[in-house]
Amino acid sequence: MSAATVNLVVAMGCEAAPLLRGLALKSLPVEGGFRAWCDDARETFLLQAGIGRVNAAAGVVTLQALSGHPACSAWLNVGIAGHAEEEVGRVLVAESVHEEAGGRVRYPALPAGLALGTAPLLTVDRPSSEYRPGFLHDMEGAAFMATALRYSSTELVHCLKVVSDNRAQPLSTAGLSKTRVESLLELAVEDVVSMVAELRVPAEQRASRLAPPAEWQKLSEEYACSVTQAALLRRLLQRWNALFPGRELPEVKQPASARGTAAGELLRQLEAGLDEMWQRDGQ
């Protein structure tokens, strides 16, 4: 399983179709009623969540599990959106995401060198022909973002929307046909592919920073560390590796089998060993 994945969430199958082709994704077994796809390297995932906030949130949770709870994931919500003034077919990235229901606003930290235009995104519960001037309108973005931020950080969670309707070309009561949605999404494929590539770089940087030292898992299990002790151990091992790269850990004179106080003693001896080595060699 990759340490960093890029996870895409769409609402409808007709939004997914052009992206599956563009990103060369293959079908995964249905999970929790959701259809999902990934690439051969299992580094890019896409899930079709269904329309609306509840589905978007559930889709993110499912995709986090499906992608193997990576150390770090970047998230991209792709879909159609209305906009009062923007031309139909224009591809825009959300610069702020507003939830109509709760009033909460989130501000994604936009990627460096983003060539696409940006606009605020308003997530509403019902399709409407009322447009708030200047805003994109969708039905998922705010819930997607709120949920994805539980697993990632604001630089790595974004919404990319293709304008599907505006005041001059409003939605008909029948909505848009699947073919029409598919052809609109077709216009965004290139942008999605490059955004996926761009997001992967910081996601990998973050994943490598968050990765625990190699010895951590084994030692924390051997010494039955509590959650707090495991966190301290991780930090100590990182410091050791930073100060003395490639050097063996100091010998710990505490048998791993002596449970209970063993973890505390391990931490004490490691810290003392680190201080001693630094005084001797590290300065």
Partner: peptide, 14 residues
């Protein structure tokens, strides 16, 4: 907000 990555932002601060 908490869900921010200082290191990533440092490369492109707003």
């Amino acid at each position: 907000p908490h869900a921010q990555d200082f290191r990533l932002q440092k490369e492109n601060p707003s």
